[in-house]
């Protein structure tokens, strides 16, 4: 029972990070209809950028802020350079371009930062675990979770209350109507990529704090795919729930199934679950079915 509760808690906390990455993913899909398969690499880049700043002796929060700024710029550039000219092309073409982008980014990461595992030194979060009632939780997990939740809240406030947040939601709902009101769809796409880059970067940084940073963190970034599909592709709350469910599943299967299927159950379980789940609920938990009025 103890083991179960602890795995559950850790799962939820890691899930918070996945939720953050999933949010960026959903945003791009919602606003521009692009399935972004380079999400894992966005995670990597952000993580390496903040690690580099941190290694220079810059305080962690400041390093994180710099990586947010760089993520923002990279997001806009990526959209401007690679995706803008593809507006109106078949969706498959665009998806293939994101696959190309993922190889491109991965190459750049290996070129700049190499393939060895790097860690944040000195460790950002204190190593001794915290006791919450009967539970023992690593501080990395706890603080990562807190950071992820704070950022998620900031994003939600942005979408609900700011001019550009509303414009993004409007574009996702009805692009043509948004255009008729003077909303710039190109700017909305660019902002979506910028936010995705930022969210993924923070997610990657937090993941890097947990296990150290190497190329495989990029694969963790791809884990959000089952998370968003589970949540229903275009639902922000769905992405958040999906992220947490995947985190929990991953940790539970790691704790209980690894004995029987040694190796990579942890990584595969979410995908298996996604496949089975979709058999029963093809639109995910909160996928948009168009609002039909009677």
């Amino acid at each position: 029972m103890e083991l179960f509760l602890m795995t559950l808690t850790t799962g939820i906390m890691v899930g918070g990070i996945y939720a953050l990455i999933a949010l960026g993913w959903v945003l791009i899909y919602k606003c521009s209809g692009v399935l972004n398969l380079a999400m894992g690499e966005l995670t990597l880049i952000g993580a390496y950028v903040s690690l580099s700043f941190y290694s220079m002796g810059i305080p962690f929060l400041l390093a994180l802020l710099f990586s947010l700024i760089i993520g923002f710029i990279l997001g806009i550039l990526t959209e401007r350079i690679f995706l803008d000219r593809l507006i109106g092309e078949p969706i498959l073409t665009v998806i293939m371009v994101t696959v190309g982008l993922s190889f491109f980014f991965r190459g750049i990461v290996e070129l700049i930062w190499g393939t060895d595992t790097r860690v944040f030194t000195p460790p950002v979060f204190p190593l001794e675990p915290i006791h919450i009632g009967p539970l023992i939780v690593g501080q990395v997990y706890l603080w990562s979770f807190v950071a992820a939740i704070i950022l998620l809240c900031i994003f939600v406030v942005f979408f609900q209350y700011t001019r550009w947040g509303l414009a993004m939601q409007a574009t996702a709902d009805d692009e043509m109507a948004a255009l008729s009101l003077g909303v710039s769809a190109r700017f909305v796409y660019a902002t979506a990529w910028a936010i995705a880059f930022m969210a993924a970067g923070v997610g990657g940084t937090l993941l890097g704090n947990i296990n150290g940073l190497n190329i495989s963190v990029g694969y963790l970034g791809l884990l959000v795919l089952p998370a968003v599909v589970l949540g229903g592709l275009n639902s922000v709350p769905g992405a958040i729930m999906g992220g947490i469910i995947i985190g929990v599943l991953q940790n539970l299967s790691g704790a209980y199934l690894d004995r029987y299927f040694p190796g990579g159950v942890k990584e595969i379980a979410p995908f298996v679950f996604m496949a089975v789940f979709l058999l029963f609920k093809p639109y995910g938990l909160w996928g948009w079915e168009r609002i039909e009025r009677v």
């Binding site: 509303l166 414009a167 409007a170 709902d173 009805d174 948004a178 009101l181 909303v183």
Partner: peptide, 12 residues
């Protein structure tokens, strides 16, 4: 914009 409130629609 069907997922926004009436007032949010106006704000857009």
């Amino acid at each position: 914009f069907e997922h926004l409130t009436v007032e949010q629609n106006l704000k857009v």
